[in-house]
């Protein structure tokens, strides 16, 4: 069951969300970014933000532990209520994918869990792909991971309601039953078992173009490999154990104490990223780790199009 909002009611609806928590939405200046909405900001309804949604759940750097007098302590969790409006299904499915790792029953990341609980995610369905490199239409996106999802129709927005948290925000609106369509994209990744294509020769062409800048991993809605390291004041022995976003494109990523680097060649690192996104994760969790947002192609310095390579050259 869903709800319906007339188009002219959208602006007031978004503003009304501010009374429920910190309101975050895409805003365009020199480019589109998610940000806390301030007076004068206009919510961007067309572009997908540069940096994905994950930053509100797994920031680039934060202390996971406090260090005091040579002992680690759990930091106090102060997670304000947040409402994020205007995230696309690729980013939202990205959260559902990160949930599989960060809410893994064996080792639940409490900070992540708290943020997921305290954040209301309101999606915006794509009628047209925001980028020519979007290929989510071939990545099996699910209607999951959001609290509410807005789907624009000719006269109104149909609002898909997935959670109680979301339902509270739209209880005053008219109900309707409607099966909204998932986004469609012209660009598609052929579903292929990639294991037969591990040989270097399949990766060389794209690898020659890769400059190891790590933008593809930093901007990926599902990449959050991280490093843990301590930063203390030697005088007081107090400080933080920090978690910092890391990238499998960095040569240091697989270095062990003693100096050996397991993936010393750029090609190995490039292949590992693509294989992890498209094959390794699927082998374990039965879905691709890639949601087809296209950022890793859009923002690649060399515009490496691995979708094209896989479709055309992997045979």
């Amino acid at each position: 069951m869903g709800k319906v909002l007339e188009k002219e009611g959208l602006h007031n609806f978004i503003l009304s969300l501010q009374k429920h928590g910190l309101l975050i939405a895409p805003v365009t200046t020199d480019m589109t970014r998610f940000k806390v909405l301030e007076a004068g900001d206009k919510v961007e309804l067309n572009n997908n933000p540069f940096f994905p949604l994950k930053k509100y759940f797994l920031p680039n750097e934060e202390p996971v532990l406090k260090i005091k007098n040579g002992l680690t302590k759990e930091p106090k969790l102060k997670e304000p209520k947040k409402i994020i409006f205007g995230a696309r299904l690729c980013d939202i499915n990205g959260l559902a994918i990160l949930d599989k790792l960060y809410l893994d029953q064996r080792f639940v990341d409490e900070t992540y869990k708290k943020r997921r609980e305290n954040t209301t995610v309101i999606g915006l369905n794509c009628l047209n792909p925001p980028s020519e490199n979007c290929f989510c239409g071939s990545m099996g996106l699910q209607k999951e991971g959001y609290d509410l999802l807005f789907h624009e129709r000719e006269l109104d927005y149909y609002i898909d309601v997935l959670t109680k948290k979301g339902a509270k925000l739209v209880k005053h609106l008219r109900s309707e039953e409607f099966d909204f369509p998932l986004p469609k994209t012209d660009k598609k990744l052929d579903p292929k078992d990639l294991w037969p294509f591990m040989a270097d020769k399949f990766w060389e062409k794209d690898n020659d173009l890769c400059v190891s800048c790590q933008r593809c991993t930093i901007l990926c809605p599902t990449c959050f490999c991280f490093d843990l390291h301590d930063d203390v004041n030697p005088a007081t022995k107090s400080g933080d154990r920090l978690r910092t976003i890391d990238s499998c494109h960095s040569p240091d990523f697989t270095q062990v104490a003693g100096g050996h680097v397991f993936r010393a060649k750029r090609l190995q690192r490039y292949r590992h990223r693509v294989m992890h996104k498209l094959q390794f994760f699927k082998d374990k969790f039965d879905r691709s780790m890639c949601t087809g947002c296209g950022r890793c192609i859009d923002y690649c310095h060399s515009k490496i199009d691995f979708v094209k390579t896989i479709n055309e050259d992997f045979k």
Binding site: R33, N60, S212, C213, Q214, R215, I218, S250, H301
Partner: peptide
């Protein structure tokens, strides 16, 4: 030991190289 692009991207700065400008960041 990471390229300038790493911090630049984390800060959500619009890429100058992509914008057709001169930037040695990746090196």
């Amino acid at each position: 030991n990471e390229p300038v692009c790493v911090e630049c991207t984390k800060r959500e700065i619009k890429c100058l190289l992509e914008d057709g400008k001169e930037c040695l960041g990746p090196l």
